[in-house]
Design a protein around this nucleic acid. Sequence first.
DNA 1: GCAAAAGTGTTAGAAGTACACCCATGA
DNA 2: TCATGGGTGTACTTCTAACACTTTTGC
Lengths: 244, 244
Amino acid sequence: MNPTVNPYVSVDCVLLGFDGEQLNVLIVRQSGKGGEDSTGNYKLPGSLIYMDENLDEAAQRVLNQLTGLVHVNMMQFKAFGGADRLKNPSDSVWLERFHHLNHHIERIVTIAYTSLLRIDRRMEKLEGGYEARWIPIGELPKLAFDHNDIVLEAVESVKQKSTLDPTLLFDLLPRKFTAAQLRVVIENVQGVTIDVKNFHKKLATMPYVMPLEEKEDGVNHRAARYYKFKRIRKKNLTEGKMES
Amino acid sequence: MNPTVNPYVSVDCVLLGFDGEQLNVLIVRQSGKGGEDSTGNYKLPGSLIYMDENLDEAAQRVLNQLTGLVHVNMMQFKAFGGADRLKNPSDSVWLERFHHLNHHIERIVTIAYTSLLRIDRRMEKLEGGYEARWIPIGELPKLAFDHNDIVLEAVESVKQKSTLDPTLLFDLLPRKFTAAQLRVVIENVQGVTIDVKNFHKKLATMPYVMPLEEKEDGVNHRAARYYKFKRIRKKNLTEGKMES
DNA sequence: GCAAAAGTGTTAGAAGTACACCCATGA
DNA sequence: TCATGGGTGTACTTCTAACACTTTTGC
């Protein structure tokens, strides 16, 4: 048994990625789980925390081991602590084996994080050992533990956070992006449809978006202008006018 | 030692109450802590969780033991899991004694909840054993653990949640309230000032606020009309119009 | 009558909504 | 030249902000 593991608390990460069309979630295989078939036994990336490790550090560690990324904005959004989270016995057996624990795990409280990423070449060559896959949020299989619930709440949380601070969504896009890409991201996350003309007007008033001279290349229609995100101080991003 | 206690995970409750002027927090004495003086040794109400208890249940239990209230809207807002949360040795010693644990506690992850209450007669006769007090958020003493941080984040969380769903704030008010009371609550929580006339206009458009015929009584100025909150389905409360 | 808080009208500007049409590009 | 998506103009409605004066009540 790893002496530094805290066997009561874990972190789980809901990595949400945008592929140009829809939101995807990164899931990993429960490696070495018995009775596996080709579609089953997936879970969210996560880990028990170490005894001397902050929660945020543990989440960064999980993400880094999986993707190699560092300094990603991981947002804690909820703790899941139902007493019956491990009600499926194969889940607790798997945990005990995976972490080389020599006592029975009755219960784990997990702290769930979410992070927004763009799915690009780097994301494709994920650390091999984890059998990680991006899956559209609408097509998730049954995951281990209560991980399906966790994904649903993560998406809801991102939806809410991004209405308060729309700049969060820029993490889902490449450094240069078109107006249409940004619009589709917002439509997806917020679950709305947006008038194209009005969106361009709005774009022009966003202080944190800068138009570039550069345009798309090699498309068989009129080339779209690129924009870039300009990070500004955290004040007044929400444009949270009050009821008056 | 109580065999049902989980010695790694706790819940802490930030009970926010409105007294007509400002937001107050409920804090309790760390009973039996050595070296106490009359101003010190306060903390947030909280408890280690029981092994077979959901997090939400634990939070309700803490609130119920303290105030006698049931069915209160407790909102989980963040887990605090810094590895050094118990860096003050007297805090961990107190915990071990209070819970009659016979081993050393190195570290606890706490799940923090917040709840909005009105401060009325029932609140005044709190369960005596806890030495509980309401303190204006601006005048909090140094609390045990990282509880001062937790209070700050609770207030911020309520501020954000209430911009998305203003109906949360009605828990801070009596069943019948005046326009001025509601306005002051919003001004306090959101940290804004609101034009009185414009507020009345807005009030008239809120589908979840109903004017009553009843008016204040026995005040030495013009009597204010009472309003009541009308709970409606959860859809569209935020009036979350999208960027268009 | 006077102190103290409640309540009301109007206007100008900004922001959001709803439409239908023209533009640039590669095939 | 045509199919494909990119980009625009204009009128209308709604929301927001900024103002100062009148009303009711107990003392």
